[in-house]
Design a protein around this nucleic acid. Sequence first.
DNA 1: GCGAACTGTGTGCGGCATACGCTGAGAGCG
DNA 2: CGCTCTCAGCGTATGCCGCACACAGTTCGC
Lengths: 274, 274
Amino acid sequence: MAESTETGLPRAVMIAWGMEKTPQRGPSRGLSHERIVGAAIDLADAEGLTAVTMQGVAKALGFTTMSLYRYVSSKEELLLLMQDAAFALPERSTLPTGWRAALPAWAELIRAAYRSHPWALEIPRGQASVLMPNSVWAADLGMAALADLDIDQESKVGVILVISQLAASMVELEGSLAEEGLVSTTPEGTGLLAEVITPERFPHIADLFAANSRVGADGGAGFAPVIDGGTLEVDGEFGLGLSLLIAGLEALQRSAARETEQVPDQDVEGTGPV
Amino acid sequence: MAESTETGLPRAVMIAWGMEKTPQRGPSRGLSHERIVGAAIDLADAEGLTAVTMQGVAKALGFTTMSLYRYVSSKEELLLLMQDAAFALPERSTLPTGWRAALPAWAELIRAAYRSHPWALEIPRGQASVLMPNSVWAADLGMAALADLDIDQESKVGVILVISQLAASMVELEGSLAEEGLVSTTPEGTGLLAEVITPERFPHIADLFAANSRVGADGGAGFAPVIDGGTLEVDGEFGLGLSLLIAGLEALQRSAARETEQVPDQDVEGTGPV
DNA sequence: GCGAACTGTGTGCGGCATACGCTGAGAGCG
DNA sequence: CGCTCTCAGCGTATGCCGCACACAGTTCGC
């Protein structure tokens, strides 16, 4: 599906890293990858990703639709370039020392990046995405944050991955909740729901829906971040997940340390892949 | 964006819960929501979500395109119904007792559900999604799994949310990696990458790309689940995240218990929202 | 300076979601 | 028992979309 050049790399990767033979002959180019991606990003920021059409981008630049195809071989490729550009972290970000402080700081950087361009999360993420410059840079920074944590390299990658996925999920959730406010704010709606979400059928969750019109809303798992008087608690969910992971890492490290001292502790890894 | 009826509830929610006034007069209906959603799901399973077009679904049913609009007011609504239908957990799933065992079991149920219909993850998840029947049911089951865990209700919801998001991310990642195998399998590709991903520029991650052509690939955070001789370690990442969360929960519980005994421990929550 | 390489344009195709008016079936009421 | 009104499914049409392709004009290497 992903266009690949004869190098085996998707063309978008080549473009993003600047490994593109720019032609010498012919008229000078009126456009550039940067301008095209920039215009597309402006469009997405202003009107959402659905507003990013080849015709829309071209019109914003004052060119015809087809002229874009001299720079980008498909819309998918443009989207990949947008995704990477949107994921730029602030140049030369510095992290606190010590993984306990560095990891949350890094996580917040990632989350901020997603937040600034939430539409980037709607773009399908393929294998090409990792190879893009800003992805690599963010991963490098993440590994740096964990430099003084005593677990193996692969697990570090896993932690980085899990946290960034968590950040992505939370931003996505935040966005979908923010748009157009809460659902079922009318009494009729909640009344109707109360008829089907009964404590008999859903003993463990019905009260969350029923209680003083606080209503859960979901993000894809099918679950409800609790809404508190209109203020979302997405921040809280993110912080909770993060702090649990950190606590888990500490436990993992402690148990590993004890193991080397030949004092076996409960095995935290034991719960492993189900 | 989400169509809402005069009840304040999105129409898709009404349909999914069976709260629809079916007309009394007129000819008998040749179609039904169930048949339409079923046909759409079959299409998505067989050829992916992009194959789900109104015309495609209609043709599969032997009806014209526009006849579908008597049952579904937009394609978005159909997609929401598909999303919920795809997320059905096995009827009457039972969980082990004790949250330590129940939580991984529940997580695996969720992951299995996503895995059986991966295209469901591509459907944008809005606020309506939580209110759908299978979402509510899954949430209820998750809360049941945590019944004997001694933390407050809101945190439980957070844990449920985080885990389901993790499962979703991992399934999505798994799918994007599986499709069309690895990228940059040609020597030219890795060579080119080695030119730009240098240890000088990316001191903490360059070796992961360089080392024996094991190559990282990403899922949207910009990070690399390590590939091991062609076998994905997505299972491992999922298990790692899950076990870290469980260890974190144990630590959280322990520290809470000590606090009530007036013996302050290190505050695990302290790392909280950044 | 001449030809090859290259740029941006115009036109057009097939596919998409969806609006609207029509016909005739069938149920409920009288 | 038959009238009438509701409603199901159809045909047609509109306006987007991504993208293929041939063409005309431009600029550099030789």
